[in-house]
Structure formats: structure tokens, C-alpha cells
């Protein structure tokens, strides 16, 4: 039986004095799944992440991560989140110290910390930056440092909020490359970059006006022109092209 890494049932959340931003959300994500979360600005994607990580406390409903209920405020290194603005996350005077920050808080020994820092940096290909202050790096490099800071905690569930919003094509490709080597991790990625979701995810969830509107394979959800346009989104270019190709290849044998 496949383990349910994340299970959400009848989740509701509203910020004090406001209409609910999430209402009756139900969702199961299995171990190793790569899930993309799409939807317009203000749909509640970030709020959902803050609830899963226990930063916010649900107004109603349950969230279980690795089959244990989320304890609001408790530290769970198995869940890692990369913030939309890396500036929120990078606080140390050197890259090395910043990647070590999480492992240090986990109470690991010096040797283990250094090992993890090196492993994470090698995976992301940023070993040469370890002594630099993160604030002086490019946006792409900062994004990789933020990723390493989370990877060093060896989370099983990795959450990313808009990971490509400030990346150029080269760093975007690098990030896709790194994520494609994470077979053992469960990924949950929110993005407006639908092509990126297409390349990294095997399942897509569409969130709009506080509810889940669609849940399925990328081709099913993002290839559905009516659905996408109804929610103010566009079918990713490559999907519409491949869709045409796909149709042509189907037609040919019929000749």
C-alpha cells in the first residue's frame, strides 16, 4: 500500500475578520508524487502551504502529514518549504552558514552538518559559493541556496512557492534538472509558470475562489482549454502544440 504523505480533509481557513480564503478543501497526496498547484493570485496557495507547515492553524478540518496530525507551531524537519521571496529565507552572512541553519536547529553534530551542507551544495552545483554572503548572489544563485538550505534538512515533503518567479532560462533549467532527480521526495509546487509545472509534476491541482476546481494529470487539467480559460488561465503552449501533434498521430493510422 502506498503511504499517504499528506492528507487534508474539510479544511477551512479565514484570516481574522475576512471571508474564508480556503473552504472545504480535501486532498490526498501519496508518497513520491509530484504535484503542481495552479490558480490565480489570491487563490489561497500560499495560505494552504502555511497551513500544511503548521504556521497557521486551520479554522476547521484536519491536516495529517506522514500520517500524523500537524501540530501548529511545532518544528517538523521532514517538511521543507521554500519561500516565494528568497530574501525572506536567507539570513546568514555566508552560504555555508545559511545551509547549516536548519540542520543546526535539528540538533545535529558538527560533522553531520558539514556533510549535509556539502551534499546539498554538490547536488545544486553551488560548492564554489559556500563562503560568499548570500545577499551578494544573483537571484538564480539565491534560489539554489534557499533550496539547499531546505534539502540539508532532508525533508520527505518539499514545498515550493513560486520557485521560478525570478529565474532566468538557465537557472530555470537547472532547477528543473535538480527536481527531476528527486524520485524519493514528495513535491508540492505552486507556480504561475505552467510550463515549469508541466516539466516537473505528474499531477496538477487547480485552486480558485477558495476551493479545488480540478485535480488530475497535467494533460487533463492544463490541456483542458475550457477549464483553464474559465479560471483565467491559459493552456501551456507546449501542451497545446503537443496536443495537436498527438491528434495528428492518432489520425494518421486511420488513413
Amino acid at each position: 500500500m502506498i503511504a499517504e504523505d499528506l492528507k487534508i480533509s474539510s479544511l477551512r481557513y479565514s484570516y481574522p475578520g475576512q471571508k474564508p480564503i480556503l473552504q472545504d478543501i480535501g486532498l490526498v497526496i501519496n508518497s513520491g508524487e509530484k504535484v503542481g498547484l495552479i490558480g490565480p493570485n489570491g487563490a489561497g496557495k500560499t495560505t494552504l502551504f502555511l497551513l500544511i507547515t503548521g504556521i497557521l492553524k486551520p479554522s476547521a478540518g484536519q491536516i495529517t502529514v506522514f500520517e500524523k496530525p500537524v501540530k501548529p507551531g511545532a518544528f517538523n524537519p521532514q517538511v521543507g518549504m521554500i519561500f516565494q521571496h528568497t530574501a525572506d529565507q536567507l539570513i546568514s552572512p555566508s552560504v555555508h552558514e545559511d545551509i547549516a541553519f536548519g540542520p543546526q536547529n535539528m540538533g545535529l553534530g558538527e560533522q553531520e552538518i558539514n556533510k549535509r551542507v556539502k551534499e546539498a551544495a554538490t547536488l545544486a552545483g553551488i560548492q564554489h559559493l559556500l563562503e560568499r554572503p548570500p545577499h551578494q548572489l544573483s537571484a538564480g544563485e539565491q534560489r539554489l541556496v534557499a533550496l539547499c538550505g531546505i534539502l540539508a534538512m532532508q525533508p520527505r515533503l518539499l514545498i515550493m512557492d513560486e520557485p521560478t518567479s525570478d529565474l532566468d532560462i538557465r537557472y530555470r533549467r537547472r532547477l528543473i534538472g535538480i527536481l527531476s532527480h528527486m524520485e524519493d521526495k514528495t513535491l508540492l509546487i505552486a507556480s504561475h509558470d505552467l510550463e515549469f509545472i508541466l516539466e516537473t509534476c505528474s499531477r496538477v491541482i487547480l485552486l480558485e475562489s477558495s476551493a479545488i476546481c480540478a485535480d488530475g494529470s497535467p494533460a487533463e487539467v492544463m490541456g483542458n482549454k475550457t477549464l483553464m480559460e474559465k479560471h483565467g488561465l491559459e493552456v501551456p503552449h507546449s501542451l497545446s502544440v503537443s496536443w495537436h501533434k498527438h491528434r495528428k498521430t492518432i489520425k494518421k493510422p486511420g488513413h
Binding site: L50, T53, I55, F75, P77, V79, G80, M81, F83, H85, A87, D88, Q89, I91, F101, G102, Q104, N105, M106, G149, I150, M153
Partner: peptide, 16 residues
């Protein structure tokens, strides 16, 4: 709010 987000990010990495 920047400060608040930084503290949340640090908390998620186990900072207390």
C-alpha cells in the same frame, strides 16, 4: 511584514 515572513521561514527551519 518582511520581518514576520523572515521569522516564519526561520521557524520552518527549526529556529526557536
Amino acid at each position: 511584514s518582511d520581518l514576520n515572513r523572515m521569522r516564519i521561514a526561520a521557524r520552518l527551519r527549526g529556529f526557536r
